[in-house]
Computed example of a mutant assay.
Amino acid sequence: MEGQLKIERREVLKEKPDFSRLGFGQYFTDHMLIIDYKEGKGWHDARIVPYAPITLDPAAMVFHYGQTVFEGLKAFKTTDNRVLLFRPEKNFARLNRSNDRLTIPQIDEEQVLEALKALISLEKDWIPTEPGTSLYIRPFIIATEPCLGVRASHEYKLMVILSPVGAYYAEGLEPVHINVESKYVRAVRGGTGAAKTAGNYASSIKAQVEAKESGYSQVLWLDGIEQRYIEEVGSMNVFFKIDGQVLTPELNGSILDGVTRDSIITLLKEWGIPVVERKLSIEELHEAYQNGTFEEAFGTGTAAVISPIGELNWLNHKMIINDGKIGELSQKLYDTITGIQTGKLADPFHWVVEVN
């Protein structure tokens, strides 16, 4: 990344929202990070500037061919006023994998992380400390070259915006009701399912809307070929506890390699709880429910950390999981990860990174 990081401070700071009533992704901090890319020059002109609308040419390629990727991570403030990030290097490594799939130039992960730390240090008064709150971090890259030819852009912007947030789902840790999606598919192997790109999410909204109209919070996605094998729940990875063993779909090219997913697997192995990554069909899950061995289910992701599943509806076969209550393992995983993230628990895995 060429040149030094420039900082332009906002003259009049925004009035901060009520941190006890944040919702998710509705408020944005005073500043943002921007880094430009131009073919032949590389990434350059890294700058922190006041948060404001941006101007793009109507022919900017992101509008026409969807060449864009993003990430999501969080910053937390500890009781002794330290600021912690949770495994940020994993997010920037995944951003580069998404870049590769969308033919976007690779970023220097360490330099971008240092620029992010500078932004968060400037905005640390925006980090809420109420239980369940955090500062959500959204890095994203868009293709900005004005051209209507179908090819990779020669110009890009990397931007990072920050948002103080509460719980992702209004239900919080209350188990959610999920509809097993049998009409639409999220992704297929060889597609972009393993990349964090906007199109994946745009194509999922229709199923989500229909699920909500039927009284469900989200959908459980099945594979795009046979529509039998479980992939993700909403925009989250998914886990099932069956007969004492924890199962999660294996990464197959259409499933996102979640940072929280990896953290959960690490914790389960550390605790001596059997955890298996493999193909899991909806029929096998229903059979486990019928024979009484289906114990818990939960989604995992940066935004919600753990989202317990209390009910699954598959072709009008309703599966009520753990009497619709959060499971003991789900609660322990949530408490452990959030405890490490906020500095309340020891971090034996060296997952947290302090922002000076």
Rank of each mutant, 00 (worst) to 15 (best):
R261W: 01
I306F: 07
M159F: 06
S307H: 02
E114R: 03
K279G: 11
N179P: 00
G42N: 11
G324D: 13
Q331Y: 11
I137M: 09
E311G: 02
K14N: 15
E39D: 15
T300W: 06
F76G: 00
K183F: 09
G253Y: 08
V188K: 13
Y289A: 08
S330Y: 03
L247V: 05
D335L: 00
P274M: 11
W271A: 01
V62Y: 03
G199N: 04
G25K: 12
W351P: 00
V69E: 04
V160S: 06
N200Q: 11
K269E: 01
K212P: 01
R138N: 04
V185F: 15
S263Q: 04
K6G: 10
I340E: 03
S203E: 07
V83P: 01
G339V: 05
N96I: 06
A194M: 12
C147T: 10
D335N: 13
V355G: 13
P88S: 09
G215R: 12
S98K: 03
W271Y: 02
R101C: 02
N96Q: 12
L5F: 14
L84C: 05
R97E: 01
Y51N: 06
L158W: 05
K38M: 12
H154Y: 11
R82P: 03
A207W: 10
L162Y: 08
E232D: 12
N291P: 00
F349T: 01
L345W: 08
M159L: 13
A167L: 10
I34D: 02
F24E: 09
G272T: 07
K206Y: 14
D347A: 10
N91Y: 04
R278W: 12
F28M: 08
P131Q: 00
V83A: 06
E354I: 06
P139I: 07
A170I: 15
L315S: 14
E181N: 07
G66F: 02
S121E: 06
W314F: 15
V69S: 03
Q67L: 02
N179K: 15
G301N: 01
P50L: 03
L122S: 05
Y136V: 10
T103M: 12
R101D: 06
V49C: 01
E231F: 14
T68V: 02
P105W: 05
Q106H: 10
R261I: 00
E110F: 06
I161F: 09
W126R: 08
R87T: 00
T260Q: 02
T338C: 13
I320M: 13
D257T: 06
I282C: 10
N81W: 05
L280W: 01
I54E: 08
P348N: 12
A195F: 03
R21I: 09
E123F: 09
E354M: 06
S214N: 15
V165F: 02
G190W: 11
I35A: 02
P50H: 05
H350Y: 14
D100W: 10
L312A: 02
E130D: 13
V275R: 00
K157T: 12
D243F: 14
L122R: 08
Q208F: 12
W221C: 11
R186N: 09
G25M: 14
V246P: 06
T192D: 04
Y201A: 14
P53T: 04
D125P: 04
L333T: 03
G339N: 07
M319N: 11
V62A: 04
Q106S: 13
F240T: 04
T78G: 04
F298R: 00
V352Q: 08
G234E: 10
D100C: 09
W221E: 06
S163C: 08
G25F: 15
E181P: 07
A143W: 03
A152P: 13
G25R: 09
